[in-house]
Amino acid sequence: HTCEKCSTSIANQAVRIQEGRYRHPGCYTCADCGLNLKMRGHFWVGDELYCEKHAR
């Protein structure tokens, strides 16, 4: 898989955010504040991922 955020190959663990879309665990972050979304879930606003606070 290729990380959709940093565009590099994912060798080990990948986070599947949608069918066919993956990120490194470290790239699974809010587009606004950079908070890691692991164990928090994500919210779509347009084509970007946000934490609950910044999705509003």
Rank of each mutant, 00 (worst) to 15 (best):
H1M: 15
V45S: 09
C30Q: 01
N12S: 11
H1K: 15
R21F: 11
T8F: 09
A31T: 09
R23F: 04
E48Q: 05
Y50Q: 06
Y50C: 06
L35V: 12
W44R: 11
A55G: 10
L49G: 06
L35M: 13
C33Q: 00
A14H: 06
N12A: 09
A55C: 09
D32A: 04
G41H: 01
G34I: 05
V15G: 05
M39P: 15
T29K: 08
C27G: 03
I17C: 03
G46T: 07
V15E: 15
M39K: 13
P25V: 08
G41V: 04
T29L: 09
E4L: 03
A31Y: 07
G26V: 13
E48F: 10
D32R: 14
T8Q: 13
D47E: 09
S7C: 12
A11I: 00
I17L: 09
D47Y: 07
L35S: 12
L35Y: 12
D47Q: 10
Q13V: 05
C3F: 03
E52C: 06
T8E: 15
C27I: 00
I10W: 03
R23S: 06
K38T: 09
V45F: 15
I17R: 02
G46R: 11
Q13T: 09
A31D: 08
E52I: 03
D32C: 07
T29R: 06
Y50A: 07
F43S: 10
S7E: 00
R56V: 12
H24C: 15
P25E: 15
Y28E: 02
R16G: 11
R21Q: 12
W44Y: 14
R40G: 15
G20V: 04
W44G: 13
N36L: 08
A14D: 05
F43P: 10
G41W: 01
K38G: 13
K53S: 14
K38V: 03
M39I: 05
H54S: 03
C51V: 00
K38H: 07
D47V: 07
Y28I: 03
G34H: 14
V45W: 09
Y28M: 09
K38W: 03
L35W: 10
Y22R: 05
T2D: 05
T8I: 04
A11S: 14
Q18A: 12
D32L: 09
G20T: 09
S9G: 10
I10E: 12
L49H: 05
A31L: 14
A14P: 13
H42W: 07
R23W: 04
C30A: 00
I17T: 05
W44E: 14
C3G: 00
K5F: 03
S9Q: 10
R21D: 07
H54I: 01
E4R: 02
L37G: 06
I17M: 04
A11C: 03
E4S: 12
Y28R: 03
H54T: 01
R40I: 05
L49D: 04
A31I: 03
K38I: 01
N12M: 09
E48M: 08
F43H: 15
Q18Y: 11
K38R: 04
A14F: 14
F43K: 04
C51S: 02
D32K: 08
C6G: 04
S9T: 06
L37R: 02
H24P: 02
C27R: 00
G41R: 07
E19I: 01
G34E: 08
G34A: 10
Y50H: 10
T2L: 00
G26C: 12
A14G: 06
N36C: 09
M39F: 08
V15S: 07
H1L: 14
Y50M: 13
L49Q: 08
C51R: 00
L49V: 10
T8S: 14
R21E: 06
Q18T: 10
G34K: 13
K5A: 14
C6R: 06
V15R: 02
S7D: 02
W44M: 11
G26L: 14
T29Y: 08
W44I: 15
T8M: 09
L35K: 10
V15A: 02
A11L: 01
K5L: 12
R23P: 09
C6L: 02
Y28F: 04
D47I: 09
Y50L: 11
I10Q: 06
E4Q: 08
S9W: 00
T29M: 05
A31C: 08
C33N: 01
N12Y: 02
L35G: 12
T8G: 14
G41E: 07
E19Y: 02
A55M: 10
P25C: 02
K5R: 15
C27E: 09
C51F: 00
C51L: 00
C33I: 02
F43W: 13
S9C: 04
I17E: 05
C6A: 04
M39D: 15
E4V: 08
E48S: 10
G20E: 07
C51E: 07
R16Y: 12
R23T: 09
S9Y: 00
Y28D: 01
K53W: 14
V45T: 02
R23Y: 05
P25K: 11
Y22V: 05
H42R: 07
D32I: 06
L49Y: 06
C27P: 04
C27S: 02
W44V: 12
H42S: 12
E4G: 11
Y22A: 06
D32V: 06
A55F: 14
G46N: 13
K38P: 11
C33D: 01
M39W: 03
V15P: 02
P25H: 08
S7I: 11
N12L: 04
K53D: 13
R40P: 14
A31H: 06
G34Y: 05
R16F: 15
Y22T: 03
A31P: 06
R56C: 13
P25R: 04
G46A: 07
A55D: 09
C51I: 03
R21M: 12
E48N: 14
G34R: 10
Q13M: 07
Y28H: 07
R56E: 15
C3H: 04
H1D: 05
H54A: 00
E48P: 01
I10A: 08
T2Q: 05
C6Q: 07
A55K: 05
